[in-house]
Design a binder for these strands. Structure first.
Lengths: 142, 142
DNA sequence: TTAATTTAAGACTAATAAGTCTGATATTAT
DNA sequence: ATAATATCAGACTTATTAGTCTTAAATTAA
């Protein structure tokens, strides 16, 4: 299997995008999120709690409780989420896994990959959750 | 964790590159490969057998036996190896994992990612094992 | 022919990611 | 106060990937 981000990370992005569609300050329960996004309830809970501890979400217990964005959606980049959930090791290692590969001793795709990776990074820091949510709204996902 | 290719796939690329450094038609044992590349012997065996079944390597049993490339190194692309080991699902799915995301109904990074993915694909089909091996030789890896 | 060496094959274990379950704690409304 | 509802926390199970072990079959050389 080839992939870039973990399933946890994908779920995180989807959940946060969903939250960005809500009114400012409004809280959404795990139950609603899990139901709408078809994500296992308790699994999603762990992910949201993690984002909460990282300061990306706010949470409140009890009835009327739930989760909400801890900052304006336009300020929360994809990179924020990915960094919090998966970490950013992919910006370091050799794609081909050659142990000796480095800037001083590059493999044959080292420089090419560095360029592509830079492109991925640029995408992740330039796109924000607000844009993701905007596209959702436009296409009438919900 | 963020990654692109599985460890099996990385090992495969390294092993095939090593084989490309050998004289044409020369066979190399798993023992030598595993030792030089620091890959678990039996794990590597599975990988090489798979590449063999896929027609990318030739193999021979017994003393003086081993594995060799089934085609000229210049004709074997990175994509050949990756396709054989990991498959090429990454060329299909939405990076963010949005289930509804498609060409008709793109997420906010759909088109941007399509471009980056195309760049990755282009790299994989344009670079061959001969080039990887050439870089190895030049930098005196062995 | 026999012993040594190597790939072939598949069952087995270990590590990690994904997902489930249970109980505690906080908050709200009755 | 009490019941209902929600997050919080952690142990637990399942699925997948990584890695190990054992035996068989093929090939070579003495």
């Amino acid at each position: 299997m080839s992939l870039i981000f973990s399933r946890q990370c994908e779920y995180a992005l989807q959940a946060v995008t969903f939250l960005a569609l809500k009114k400012d300050g409004e809280l959404t329960s795990i139950k609603e999120l899990a139901g709408k996004l078809r994500i296992p309830h308790h699994f999603l809970a762990k992910i949201l709690q993690r984002l909460s501890r990282k300061g990306l979400l706010t949470s409140l217990r009890g009835p009327t409780g739930g989760f909400g964005l801890a900052m304006p959606a336009k300020e929360m980049t994809l990179f924020h989420i990915i960094e919090a959930v998966d970490g950013v090791d992919f910006t370091q290692q050799c794609v081909m896994g050659f142990p000796e590969c480095s800037g001083k001793n590059p493999c044959a795709v080292h420089d090419k990959w560095a360029g592509l990776r830079e492109g991925i990074y640029a995408m992740l820091v330039s796109r924000n959750i607000g844009q993701m949510a905007g596209e959702m709204k436009k296409k009438e996902y919900q």
